[in-house]
């Protein structure tokens, strides 16, 4: 890399049909968007240079989010507002940039500091995103009402779950499947109207996927776990600040107001 570069962190929203785009493809999407927007991103050296970009906490396919982050290195800067404006000109339905902040010189990669995320889990209605041309209405109604009643059972056990001494689920690791107590990864679990709110450990120290918590709830409620029945939505991604408190990744840097003086 040539001289000095600036590290910026981008917060974006992933929703709608974009939930079917995996995070590697989304990274390529952003790389192309950067190029189209003409931002002065830094590249690696060599015969096939690539943009220096890394994601904070990859989302599973099918999950939506309003608190996603990635880092990029820039050769020169424009203001946060300008970034948001020019990047959003290059977005498609379902993805947009919310904030851009400048990180301190020695800032660690988002990936290495992520400590938690919170989620809203809801019952997946046949929402307005997907429609089918032909459907057997009776069949669907039966299935839907069964699912709905299962969901109500799950909701009923939400307040109890954290009171248990241990919350055990099967977890697949690279090597094998084992029973694990996931309680330490659940910081908060509560009902918000008819939706389930959860605040979970994320990142390299301990990583708990919302799917595991839903599974635990299903076990507790005695209903079968079918991962397609729930829509998971990430609200925010957090790190541990100097005081040891969990804070939004947005607090890791500062707004770029006057790029000339940065």
């Amino acid at each position: 890399m040539s001289e000095e570069t600036y590290k910026i962190r981008i917060k974006y929203v992933k929703s709608g049909v974009l939930k079917y785009i995996g995070h590697l493809d989304l990274m390529r999407f952003f790389q192309k968007a950067f190029k189209r927007a003409g931002v002065d991103v830094a590249y690696s050296q060599g015969f096939s240079p690539h943009q220096l970009m890394s994601f904070a906490a990859p989302l599973a396919l099918g999950v939506t989010s309003e608190g996603e982050y990635f880092d990029a290195q820039m050769n020169s800067l424009v203001s946060s507002e300008e970034y948001v404006r020019i990047l959003n000109e290059q977005m498609v339905d379902g993805v947009y940039v919310k904030n851009v902040i400048l990180l301190p010189e020695k800032a660690k990669k988002a990936m290495s500091i992520v400590a938690a995320s919170d989620y809203i889990v809801s019952f997946k209605d046949d929402d307005d995103l997907n429609y089918q041309f032909v459907r057997d209405l009776n069949d669907i109604d039966n299935k839907e009402s069964q699912k709905k009643s299962d969901y109500n059972k799950i909701i009923a056990v939400v307040p109890q779950l954290l009171k248990k001494d241990a919350i055990e689920v099967f977890r697949k690791t690279k090597k094998n499947e084992k029973v694990e107590d996931i309680k330490k990864g659940i910081y908060k679990l509560e009902l918000r109207e008819d939706k389930i709110y959860m605040f979970l450990a994320t990142g390299s120290e301990y990583n708990l996927k919302p799917e595991s918590v839903i599974e635990a709830l299903c076990n507790e409620a005695g209903v079968p776990y079918n991962k397609f029945d729930y829509q998971i939505h990430r609200i925010e991604t957090y790190y541990k600040n100097e005081k040891g408190q969990l804070a939004s990744l947005l607090e890791t840097g500062t707004k770029i107001t006057d790029p000339m003086h940065n």
């Binding site: 709608g16 049909v17 974009l18 079917y20 785009i21 995996g22 493809d25 999407f29 192309k32 968007a33 189209r36 396919l61 099918g62 290059q90 498609v92 339905d93 379902g94 997946k124 046949d126 929402d127 307005d128 995103l129 997907n130 429609y131 089918q132 041309f133 397609f228």
Partner: peptide
């Protein structure tokens, strides 16, 4: 917002659902 012809369950159950959703840049 874009709507999709296939249900979520179908899309999540097949390889590379992105093949069927359109919405590409410059579409």
């Amino acid at each position: 917002m874009s709507r999709l012809a296939l249900s979520d369950e179908i899309l999540m159950g097949i390889e590379k659902p992105a093949r069927y959703i359109g919405n590409e840049f410059n579409m």
